[in-house]
Design a protein around this nucleic acid. Sequence first.
DNA 1: GTAACTGCAAAATATTTGCATCCTT
DNA 2: AAGGATGCAAATATTTTGCAGTTAC
Lengths: 150, 150
Amino acid sequence: MQTVFFDDTIELKMEKDITEILKRSQLSITGSRKKILELFQKSNGALAHADIESSTGEQYDRVTIYRTLQTFVEKGIIHTIPTADNSVRYALCKDECTEGHHHDNHVHFICDNCGATYCLENIIVPEVKLPGGFIQKQADVIVSGTCDKC
Amino acid sequence: MQTVFFDDTIELKMEKDITEILKRSQLSITGSRKKILELFQKSNGALAHADIESSTGEQYDRVTIYRTLQTFVEKGIIHTIPTADNSVRYALCKDECTEGHHHDNHVHFICDNCGATYCLENIIVPEVKLPGGFIQKQADVIVSGTCDKC
DNA sequence: GTAACTGCAAAATATTTGCATCCTT
DNA sequence: AAGGATGCAAATATTTTGCAGTTAC
């Protein structure tokens, strides 16, 4: 968990962005959605259901979080990141993502020790040539090992 | 699910290999371990717990399968493949894998439609340069979309 | 006012643990 | 014979579903 400080201007801008994103996806603006979206924006890594549950201080029902995440995935606001353990993690999509179509092609690093997920933005995922008949929708590179803090 | 036919010579060779692998890992040779290892050798994709359970016709207890898979992972016989849904899948390690150290660097393709996992052996995973302090242990490339049968 | 969202209860799934019994070596 | 492996029962954990009450627009 990390604590991040923002000055008011940025807070306000962020709040506006969040509202914008929800509106664009034709979702009603509710407390839980704003809060969860805000969490994603503050964390530059990926979040699991449990992270969100604890970060919000059990303010929202577990089921609401499940449903909110599912809705966000369907609307192309967030996407799941493959992990080798069975924890599902989510990260914000880039603007290019549209409903049902994710084009998020940066490398994710998962620390075996502390479990943190990092998005290594500046590393570009190379093109993969698939055999005939295979149609690619998404590609992820998952590197695991020990992070710089462990 | 696929049906595969082997002539006796190959069956015998496979049986021998399986025993070898178990011996090398200092594991006792039991029915469930042989059967599960055989399943991995016959499938050239990856298997989930549920696949194994149904392929063996519920011959073995669910718990035994969990424990066998866990043991195999610890011994470096199989490894987990990251997936975006929460299903954990396993695939045979290459010989270079040693206990606790996996070097399996081919691309996996997961079909969003039928759920099958393919190992695209002939596509090499490119090297990824990590920022300082990050130590890489494993790297996976997960491509998802529609497979040639769907 | 209406449709959509949330919370609670409960069902359905998935995974782990303890222990007695059985099997491999 | 001894240690490890298995099966069963049960405890946990995770995710999904139904429904009634509440909120956003």
